[in-house]
Every structure is written in structure tokens, then in C-alpha cells.
Amino acid sequence: MSHLGLITIVVDDYDRAIRHYVQDLGFALVKDLDQGDKRWVVVAPPGTERDRQATHVLLAEATDDDQRARVGDQTGGRVSFFLHTEDFDMDHMALSQRGIVFEEEPRDEPYGRVAVFCDLFGNRWDLIETVSRLD
């Protein structure tokens, strides 16, 4: 095994999710393939869309009540995703200017600089610049 390729985020609507991840979060749309009864929609953080070793995000539209109940709360309210940056202040400002609301002011921790935000669906994310690449 060499790397984790995809993680799934359950969303309520493909097009709404694509707009949010691409326009608001600045992700790249890697794939959007119609497979008849569903779509294969993959997005990636800026600069990682062509990196075969980077983890990408599969956006999966909820198809039943159990899945719809988990949209935005896939981890019971815990931070679900960790978006790493090499320039925290620049990315924090860019996300804020695009309407991303942070739950807290940026803070410095022993492991790095961090602030929590929610995506459009309610999933909690850390924007984080670590002090070490051994994270």
C-alpha cells in the first residue's frame, strides 16, 4: 500500500457541492462523470489535483434517509477533515473573503497554527499549518 487515494463526503446535491468546494474552498474539480444512476465527482485541494499520491475527495450524493441524516455530521460533531497549508494567514484570509466562516480565531498550538471552519454541509474542518511535516 502506498497512499490513501480518496475519502468520501456525503452531500445533499452534487451541483451545490461542486460549487461550494470549487468556488468557496478553492478546490479543483478533478472528475465529474455521469454514471447513469449516480455521478463520480472528485475534487482536490489546490495544487494536488494531478498528484497521484495526494488524497482527493469523492463527493457522494445521499440516496436514502440514512445517508441524508449523515450529511454534515459524518463524525458526530468532531473535526472530520484537516486541510493543510503552507501559508496559514494567506489561506485563512482567502477563505474568509470567499465567505467561509471560521468558528474561532486562529490559534497557535504546539503542532502548528489552526482554526476550525464548517463547509456548506456542516462538516467541521481544521485549516492547519503544521510546525513539522511529520504530522
Rank of each mutant, 00 (worst) to 15 (best):
P46V: 01
G72E: 04
W40N: 02
W125Q: 05
F88G: 02
Y14N: 10
K38W: 10
G77L: 04
V11E: 03
W40D: 06
Y111P: 03
V116A: 12
E86W: 05
H56A: 12
R16G: 14
A17S: 14
A115R: 09
T63I: 06
M90D: 05
F82V: 15
D37W: 12
A28H: 08
H3Q: 14
R113W: 07
M90T: 07
V114P: 02
P106L: 09
D91W: 13
D126A: 08
R39M: 00
H92S: 03
I9T: 09
D91R: 15
K38M: 10
V30I: 08
H3W: 11
E61F: 02
I128M: 07
Q53K: 13
I100H: 10
H84P: 00
S132W: 13
L127R: 05
G99H: 11
V57L: 15
P46R: 10
H3A: 12
A60W: 14
K31A: 12
A28N: 04
Y21L: 08
E86R: 14
L25I: 02
F81Y: 13
V114D: 00
A60T: 03
R39A: 00
T63Q: 15
E49R: 11
C118T: 14
D73C: 06
D15E: 14
S80H: 13
F102K: 01
H92Y: 14
I100Y: 09
V22T: 15
G5L: 08
G122E: 05
E129F: 04
F117L: 05
A69R: 11
L134Y: 12
T130C: 11
V42S: 06
Y14P: 02
R39K: 13
K38I: 05
T8I: 14
D34E: 04
Q97L: 15
T8A: 09
A115H: 09
E103H: 14
T55G: 14
F27W: 01
E104L: 10
F81C: 09
Q53C: 07
S2W: 06
V131M: 03
Q74M: 15
T85M: 04
F27L: 03
D91T: 12
V30A: 02
Q53M: 10
E105C: 04
R39N: 01
Y111V: 05
Q35R: 07
V41A: 06
I128Y: 08
D34Y: 00
L58C: 13
D126E: 07
E86S: 08
L25A: 06
D91A: 04
G77S: 07
V114C: 03
R50M: 00
L25Y: 01
V11H: 11
V42T: 07
K31H: 15
L58Q: 08
E109P: 00
R52T: 06
R133Q: 09
S2L: 08
H84W: 05
L83R: 08
H92P: 02
L134W: 09
D91I: 07
E109S: 03
W40Q: 00
D51G: 10
H92N: 11
A54F: 11
T130L: 11
I18L: 03
F82K: 03
R39D: 00
F121G: 00
S2F: 11
E49V: 04
P110Q: 12
D65Y: 04
V22N: 09
